[in-house]
Nucleic acid binder design. Structure first.
Lengths: 88, 88
DNA sequence: TTATATTTGTCCGTATGTATG
DNA sequence: ACATACATACGGACAAATATA
């Protein structure tokens, strides 16, 4: 069976664990550039954490430039064209 | 190029930006007293916002007494004769 | 009369931003 | 970290009234 993805007592706090998982999915292309990241509620349900925790994770990804959020709309995977500091 | 009139991330929320633009057009006379304001759908298309956002903007203008709405007919620019708090 | 198109009114569901315990 | 509430926003759907053919 599937191991719980998020460990509340892990070395890294939950919001960083969530961020790491999503970052990996973006890097592998499971979350394609330009596509919408699942809603905060969807991620909250999937990982079994509060929406606030998901928001913290998304904030990390935003700071890394991996995603960008449009208020009242959603969060999207940043494309190379949108990346401000050089296409990786 | 044409600047997008509405900025989803602006200091003011979109519905207030729409209200401000329409209020300006009324003040300059681009929208004359007694004339019909474009339909909610037309404004929605013009500004690239949801009808709900347009309705919020029109609500603001109604509260300011700049326009008045007739169900199933449309919204009209209030004339000085119609203004409740002192004719011109 | 009937039919169609237009416009506003209302409701639903979903989403993010912010604020508060 | 979690739970809840409110404001704002988008999209869709349907009803009622109106106008026109």
């Amino acid at each position: 069976m599937a191991a719980r993805e998020i460990d509340p007592r892990g070395a890294k706090p939950p919001f960083r664990q969530v961020a790491a998982i999503l970052a990996a999915e973006i890097k592998t292309g499971a979350l394609a550039p330009g596509s919408a990241v699942p809603s905060e509620k969807a991620l909250s349900d999937r990982f079994g954490v509060a929406r606030d925790t998901v928001r913290s994770a998304l904030r990390v990804l935003r700071e890394e430039g991996l995603v960008h959020t449009v208020p009242s709309r959603g969060t999207y995977v940043t494309t190379s064209a949108e990346a401000p500091d050089g296409e990786q």
